[in-house]
């Protein structure tokens, strides 16, 4: 008996449908917010592949977001490529760079991995900060959006673009859900739980970590490309290390190890900072305290905690009782 309607998939479907339904009433700011959240959700899901599924805590994931964004910007603005191919190129570029970086970071564990991903991402930040050709610290304006005319749609309409981003996010979810439920995904889960045992069973750990590092880099690159199109602009700030920190927080707030958790985290954190920043100038302090509270007291995150209660309610004789 296979269960296709897992809690996670149903939740994802509900989120997508309600976003699409909401676009119509949302107005300009709501539509912009939906697009922004959808893009962040893609970004957060990509990081969760590393943090939640494989146990690789990266504090430099924004580098790939930035690479996707800059690739799209440079190719469209400077080289005159069309947006679709520059998007693909951004994804591939992010994947290539992830392959190079991953080749020597995946063998590192714990704190070393965290620090080195952080430092490497700052290297890209420093490069784009000083590179006048690509705008330096002023960034690079004038990035066009994907041409949706063949569907008879105008991507510059915020409602259309919001729908477009939600659909892309949904497709990313479906793809990653497929991957993480495959034997490959099972290997990653097992590596997360017990890397040594997995190795002694005969799995080449490094290769699998590298593979998921590349996938995560590519998906982050896609998010970056979408972000560049959304804002029409990219600057080195997109890859500053705090961006990596905040997306990590999103993943934690939503709950690691589930794609929907990352989506929920992206939405909650983005909306909270939106609301808080309109209330007080010192909203970052409250965000910081909120993060700390979640990390200390709700380790499973929002979706993780809710899912736990849901499963417990559905199946009251929880595993403990089966022990004998």
């Amino acid at each position: 008996m296979k269960n296709y309607f897992t809690l996670e998939r149903v939740t994802a479907l509900v989120i997508v449908v309600s976003c699409l339904g909401f676009v119509d009433f949302a107005g300009y700011y709501g539509q912009e917010l939906i697009a922004e959240i959808a893009i962040l959700a893609i970004f957060a899901m990509s990081l969760d592949l590393l943090v939640g599924y494989t146990g690789l805590v990266s504090l430099g994931h924004a580098a790939f977001l930035g690479i996707g964004a800059y690739a799209t910007g440079i190719l469209t603005v400077h080289m005159g490529w069309n947006v679709a191919s520059s998007m693909a190129a951004g994804v591939i570029m992010a994947g290539l760079i992830a392959a190079i970086i991953g080749a020597f970071v995946v063998r590192l564990g714990g704190i070393f991995f965290i620090m080195i991903t952080l430092a490497l991402s700052q290297m890209f930040y420093a490069y784009f900060l000083k590179n006048r050709e690509f705008g330096g610290d002023d960034g690079m304006p004038g990035i066009p959006r994907l041409d949706l005319e063949m569907f008879g749609l105008d991507a510059s309409d915020p409602a259309i673009f919001a729908v477009f981003t939600v659909i892309v996010a949904a497709l990313v979810f479906v793809l990653l859900d497929l991957i993480m439920n495959s034997p490959f995904g099972r290997y990653l889960l097992a590596i997360h739980q017990n890397e040594n045992r997995m190795r002694s069973l005969g799995a080449p750990i490094g290769l699998y970590k590298l593979a998921i590092f590349i996938v995560a880099g590519m998906v982050a690159g896609l998010a970056g490309s979408m972000q560049a199109q959304h804002m029409g602009f990219v600057s080195p700030d997109a890859m500053f290390w705090t961006v990596s920190g905040i997306v990590l927080i999103m993943v934690i707030v939503g709950g690691t190890g589930t794609l929907v958790g990352a989506v929920v985290g992206a939405a909650v954190v983005r909306m909270m900072s939106h609301e808080l920043s309109s209330l007080t100038e010192y909203w970052m302090m409250y965000m910081g305290l909120f993060f700390i509270g979640i990390v200390l007291f709700a380790g499973d995150g929002i979706y993780g905690t809710l899912a736990k209660y849901w499963h417990r309610a559905r199946d009251p004789k929880a595993p403990q009782d089966l022990a004998k």
Binding site: V51, V57, L59, G110, I111, I114, T242, G245, L248, I249, I252, M284, M285, M287, G288, L289, F290, F291, I292, V295, L296, G299
Partner: peptide, 14 residues
């Protein structure tokens, strides 16, 4: 380490 990183990251903003 993940927890340490996140909490101290939160402290930066505070």
């Amino acid at each position: 380490p993940l927890k340490q990183v996140l909490v101290t990251f939160g402290l930066i903003f505070v």
